[in-house]
Computed example of a mutant assay.
Amino acid sequence: MGKLFPALLPEHEAFIRKQRIFFVGSAPMDEEGHVNISPKGHDVLRLLSPTSVAYLDLTGSGNETSAHLTDNGRITFLFMAFEGPPMILRLYGKGRVVLPGSEEWEELAPRFELLPGARQIITAELHAVKTSCGFSVPFFSYEGERDTLQKWAAAKGEEGLQQYRKDKNAFSMDGRLTPIGRQTGMSASNEQERQNL
């Protein structure tokens, strides 16, 4: 039932483009850290080539993927059919964080609609694509996107978002420094001070 491919085939790309949600998995290098799985909605994913993908990452309460990618780069994308023929599609790769203001951001950002709260772009070079049956995935009907996050980000404003990211996105839940944390001048000692408050 499961098949392994070195790159995305046209039928994989067509399947991905139909999906309204995908999931991103990452984990730190050591065994003590938490494995993270994040759901992603909105039209934020771009297929750059058969072995390269990117998604626009919006400001949220955590920043686990960013910290994990800085630690080891491992990333997995999961797509599944909630309607039509069953299928699960996983993309395995090595990811990186691209922050606003960088040269790479300027190259990638025009590919996206920069939604309110956009904080970084996650890119990944794929080394494996795997399909599996998806026979047990239930049917679900798509009703529309939630606008809650975008309204929240718009209400915060750019200055408020920058402060929120410094307060909430500089470290992972395991205390790992993220690229946003480095950009804002944070350090491990800052996180220790924060936890002691």
Rank of each mutant, 00 (worst) to 15 (best):
K3G: 06
L4Y: 08
A7M: 10
L8Q: 05
H12I: 02
E13W: 05
A14Y: 08
Q19H: 11
F22Q: 01
F23M: 11
S26T: 14
P28C: 06
E32D: 09
H34K: 13
V35D: 02
N36K: 08
S38A: 15
S38I: 14
P39W: 08
H42Y: 15
V44K: 02
V44N: 03
V44L: 07
S49D: 07
P50C: 04
V53G: 01
A54I: 04
L56M: 05
L56Y: 10
T59E: 06
N63R: 00
N63E: 03
A67I: 07
A67K: 02
L69W: 14
T76E: 13
A81T: 01
A81V: 01
F82G: 03
E83F: 13
G84K: 08
P86K: 04
M87C: 15
M87G: 08
L89E: 00
L91D: 01
K94N: 11
V97I: 15
V97A: 12
V98E: 13
V98G: 10
L99M: 15
G101P: 08
S102Q: 15
E107T: 12
E107L: 10
P110I: 01
P110G: 09
F112D: 11
I122D: 07
T123R: 05
A124W: 14
L126W: 08
S132D: 13
S136L: 07
S136K: 04
V137L: 04
V137D: 00
P138N: 03
Y142C: 01
G144E: 00
E145W: 13
R146E: 05
D147N: 07
T148M: 10
A154V: 12
K156G: 03
G157W: 14
Q162M: 14
Q163S: 12
F171W: 05
L177T: 02
I180N: 00
I180H: 06
I180S: 05
I180A: 06
G181H: 04
R182G: 05
T184C: 03
S189N: 13
E191K: 15
E191T: 08
E193D: 13
N196A: 15
L197N: 08
